[in-house]
């Protein structure tokens, strides 16, 4: 029998793997965006697990909003990457220092 704890440990594992992914792939901005998508997925899974086991639909409504915002975020992120490539001719993160921050 699959209990709530199984699902929670699963989404915890997914979250920790994507945290490690952000550290490992800090050179490649596309893989960074993919790791962020993975983190959002694990958070959404957590929401759905709690929604299912406490018999409350609100968690699923929240996941709906998170999906919409995440889609907007990745669309703008990819647009910025394309614009950056046009200026710099590369998308390496250590070359992104235009603002001299």
């Amino acid at each position: 029998m699959i209990t709530m704890t199984h699902y929670l440990v699963f989404s915890l594992l997914l979250f920790c793997i994507s945290i490690a992914g952000i550290f490992i792939n800090r050179k490649n901005i596309l893989l960074l965006l993919m790791s962020i998508e993975l983190m959002l997925l694990s958070v959404n899974t957590n929401f759905i697990v709690f929604s299912h086991f406490s018999n409350d639909i609100t968690g699923q409504v929240f996941v709906f909003f998170i999906l919409a915002v995440a889609a907007a975020e990745s669309a703008i992120g990819l647009a910025i990457i394309v614009a950056l490539y046009r200026v710099k001719n590369s998308i390496e993160i250590n070359l992104i220092n235009k603002l001299k921050g």
Binding site: M34, S51, H52, L67, A70, A75
Partner: peptide, 22 residues
């Protein structure tokens, strides 16, 4: 987990739009 709507939205919106954008 009986979240049918969100499962379909995940496939249609995420796999169908966001990952194709990627």
């Amino acid at each position: 987990l009986q979240a049918e709507f969100l499962a379909i939205v995940l496939v249609l919106v995420y796999v169908g739009a966001v990952l194709v954008l990627f």
